[in-house]
Design a protein around this nucleic acid. Structure first.
Length: 327
DNA sequence: TTCCAGGTAGTCG
DNA sequence: CGACTACCTGGA
C-alpha cells in the first residue's frame, strides 16, 4: 500500500530547510538516506513499519513538504502526517522563535545562518538514547556509522523497491548482544577457523568502550527505567532518572530529553556551546558546564533547546567555532 | 606518526 | 563535591 500527499505551507509554521535539519548532526538519529532528492527512513506509524519518503525544495523555505509513505500494513494518512510533523518539529513556530532571537542582540545573527533549521526529533526514543550515548567524545561520522551498523546487525529487515531498511533493535535484543570479539567467540558452539572475523558484537560497530554502557543502559531501560515512564515525567525528574544510565552524563541526558522526549527546555552543554556562551555573554571568563546549563535554561526558557541548536550551527558556519578552537 | 573528536566514569584530595 | 585523567576508534 502506498500513500502520497503534501503538507502545505500553512501547515508548517515558518520556514523549513529539510536538508540542513537532517544533516546537522543532531544526536536523535543518523541522517536519513538520500535518494533521488528524497530523504527516506523506516519508522513506526501506528505500530506498523512504514517507509517514509520526503522531499522539500530548500531553496524556497516556505514551499510544500511532499510525503510518500509505503507500508504493507494499513496506516492512516493522519498517522503518517503526525509522525513527520513530530520528527521535523513542523508545529514549532519558527517565526515566533526568530522574534525571540531578535530580542537578544547576541542571538540575532544566528537567524540568517540557520534559516529553516529545525529540531530533528527521534522517531524512536530508545534509538536516540543509544545514539546519544554513542556520540559522547566521538565524531558525528563515527557515531552515525555505529548506529547504522547496530540497526543492520540486530534490527528487523524490511525490503522495499528502493532498498532494504532496518528498524532499531528493542532494548531486550540490544541488551543481550555480545560486547566484544571474545564474548562473541565464547558464545559460539562450533569450532572456528583461526582467521575467523567476529563482527556480530557491539565493539565491532565502532562504539569502543561505550559498548558496555550501551548494553547495560538497554538492560536498565528494559527492567527499571521504562521509556513510557520517562515520557510522562516532567523535565527535572526525567533528567535525574536518565542520568542514572551508564554513559549518560549531563550533556547526553539533555540531548536525550531534547531530541528523544521533545523537552524543549533542555539546554545540552558540550564544549562548543560552553565556549560560545562564554564568548558571547562572559568574555574573558570561564564557566563550569553546569553554570552554562543553568544560564541557558534560565535565559532561554522553553526555547533553550532551539537556541543551543542555533548557536552551534551559527558558530560553525560563521567561522566563530574555528576562532574558539582549543581554548 | 600523532592528534583529536559535540563527555563520562573512576580516582584522589 | 571539585579537579584530574584514561578511554575505543579512525580520519586528517
Amino acid at each position: 500500500m502506498i500513500t502520497q500527499f503534501n503538507i502545505k505551507n500553512q501547515k508548517i509554521k515558518g520556514p523549513l530547510n529539510l536538508s540542513l535539519t537532517i544533516n546537522s548532526g543532531q544526536t536523535s538519529q543518523p541522517p536519513w538516506k538520500e535518494s533521488n532528492s528524497y530523504f527516506q527512513e523506516l519508522i513506526q506509524v501506528e505500530g506498523a513499519p512504514c517507509l517514509v519518503n520526503i522531499k522539500h525544495d530548500d531553496a524556497d523555505t516556505d514551499s510544500n513538504l511532499e510525503i510518500i509513505a509505503e507500508s504493507t500494513e494499513k496506516v492512516s494518512e493522519k498517522g503518517i502526517k503526525n509522525s513527520v510533523r513530530e520528527i521535523f518539529s513542523l508545529d514549532h513556530d519558527l517565526n515566533q522563535f526568530y522574534q525571540f532571537l531578535s530580542e537578544d542582540p547576541k542571538l540575532t545573527p544566528t537567524i540568517e545562518f540557520c534559516q529553516g533549521l529545525r529540531l530533528f526529533n527521534a522517531h524512536n526514543p530508545f534509538e536516540c538514547i543509544i545514539s546519544s550515548i554513542s556520540s559522547a567524545n566521538c565524531s558525528i561520522l563515527r557515531w552515525t556509522r555505529s548506529v547504522n551498523d547496530i540497526k543492520r546487525k540486530w534490527g528487523d529487515q524490511y525490503h522495499f523497491d528502493s532498498g532494504d531498511f532496518y528498524s532499531f533493535p528493542v532494548p531486550n535484543v540490544l541488551g543481550n548482544v555480545p560486547e566484544h570479539d571474545l564474548e562473541e567467540m565464547q558464545r559460539c558452539e562450533d569450532e572456528l577457523p583461526e582467521d575467523f572475523i567476529f563482527e556480530n558484537n557491539l565493539q565491532a560497530c565502532g562504539v569502543g568502550y561505550r559498548a558496555k554502557y550501551i548494553i547495560n543502559a538497554a538492560r536498565m531501560i528494559q527492567s527499571e527505567i521504562g521509556i513510557q515512564k520517562v515520557a510522562r515525567m516532567r523535565y527535572d525528574e526525567a533528567f535525574d532518572t536518565i542520568l542514572q544510565l551508564p554513559g549518560v552524563g549531563p550533556k547526553v541526558a539533555d540531548c536525550i530529553l531534547l531530541y528523544g522526549f521533545k523537552m524543549g527546555e533542555a539546554f545540552p552543554v558540550d564544549v562548543w556551546i560552553k565556549r560560545i556562551v562564554e564568548h558571547l555573554y562572559f568574555p574573558g571568563e570561564e564557566l563550569k558546564p553546569q553554570e552554562v546549563r543553568v544560564f541557558g535554561m534560565e535565559r532561554y526558557g522553553d526555547w533553550a533547546g532551539y537556541v543551543q541548536l542555533y548557536l552551534f550551527h551559527y558558530a560553525r558556519k560563521s567561522g566563530l567555532l574555528e576562532s574558539l578552537r582549543k581554548k
